[in-house]
Design a protein around this nucleic acid. Structure first.
Lengths: 219, 219
DNA sequence: TACTTCTTGTGAACCATTTCACATGGCTTC
DNA sequence: GAAGCCATGTGAAATGGTTCACAAGAAGTA
């Protein structure tokens, strides 16, 4: 009834929940479930069944009345919606603490995010090997990003240099950036920027404890 | 007009924005700003001035009409609201890729989150030193957490074992958990649980690119 | 085929959050 | 001390997101 072609503004929360559904569907698949109801899916995510159905309904009708959703089929649908049914060539910039942890982060690879390039400005790191990838000199950023056909960048550099690197990365034609530096970056309107701020969630916990905020959802 | 004592349900987004304001105020302080208006604050966070004022108004009136907010004073107010004006004794469980990156993550320490204990189950890691902290055997989890007076736990272990550890941690009396494992954990209702899912933001970027979703806010 | 059971898909109702708009009050200048 | 300016704090309006409730479709049973 509401085909994917119909442009409707989808909320950020809906997309985030699709990620959750995807993860749970992968699990259900491993547990050899054939089908799953919105009720069961909701239970696992601590959401309401109506929420699950509404989220999915923005993109089409994937279920069977009386039966539920076919696990494998729904998983594939969500992969398509999220755009993770393909390979994304990703460059990771900054091979420090966070950066080197991310190189080996399995969830990225599982979902089609292939880190194929590493960059740093530290001479001691340049040339070194992380999980089979040689760290490149950030001096060659623009050229190498274009040659390697990179479309996404993960930024794990100090806040002080993040903006300069973003400017270069944008010049190189990258249009999606995941930023781990605790700073507000400026990008042109056509570039997608997301910030990952790990302190934020600890701060939320702190607030919740101090205020006896009854925990409800976990994002 | 609306003192902090009045219990009102504060939205998750408001708390997250307070974190953003806090970070920006720290920066403004370094740049020697005396005062800041909601307009300026909003500009830096890509929000509206009304949003900033409304967020703050839930907790009191901290500004001066015609002038704006005193940077240092507002920063302190937010510290108090978020509960980061004190020290939190934190244990980090799982000294793998992510775990060891987090030990050195400066933002945590800056905001009063003191990682004072490390745990792992890997004999090769137990006894080793990370940033001055000796890794403990997870076998002694409950006892050591209580002795060290830990109130928060950061969980950076594989998904397969996360639930068992959470159960132990809860038994030890911990009531705040930040989970990096890609799994839905069960905790009693009085325990605060937050999940950090780094793949989620990449998935959002992927979705945005595939759907030409015009970027608006970055969380 | 008729009946029961189950669960989807979705307008409509409800609730939460954001934005608007303006009265209020502090500060500065004359 | 009056006037002008500026930016807060906040009800009210507008927007956006979630939940309700039910019609309708599929599968199984007799």
């Amino acid at each position: 009834m509401s085909p994917a072609s119909v442009k409707k503004r989808i909320s950020e929360s809906t997309i985030h929940r699709l990620s959750l559904y995807y993860r749970t569907l992968s699990l259900l698949e491993k547990e050899n479930y054939e089908t799953v109801s919105s009720k069961e899916l909701a239970k696992r995510e601590k959401l309401t069944p109506a929420q699950v159905r509404k989220d999915l309904s923005f993109f089409g009708s994937f279920g069977t009345r009386g039966l539920g959703y076919n696990v494998n089929e729904l998983k594939k649908k969500i992969e398509t919606i999220l755009g993770i049914n393909r390979e994304w060539r990703v460059a990771l910039i900054g091979v420090g603490n966070i950066g080197s942890a991310l190189v080996s982060y399995k969830e990225f690879a599982k979902q089609g995010f292939d880190i194929v390039k590493l960059f740093d400005n530290d001479q001691r790191k340049i040339g070194s090997n992380h999980k089979g990838i040689i760290v490149s000199d950030i001096k060659n950023l623009e050229k190498e990003i274009q040659e390697a056909n990179i479309s996404m960048v993960i930024l794990a550099v100090p806040a002080t240099v993040a903006q300069y690197i973003v400017d270069d990365v944008v010049k190189a034609g990258v249009t999606a950036i995941l930023n781990f530096a605790p700073i507000n970056l400026r990008v042109p309107p056509y570039v997608h920027l997301r910030n990952e701020n790990m302190a934020m969630e600890l701060e939320y916990l702190s607030f919740a404890m101090v205020n006896n905020h009854s925990p409800k959802k976990t994002k």
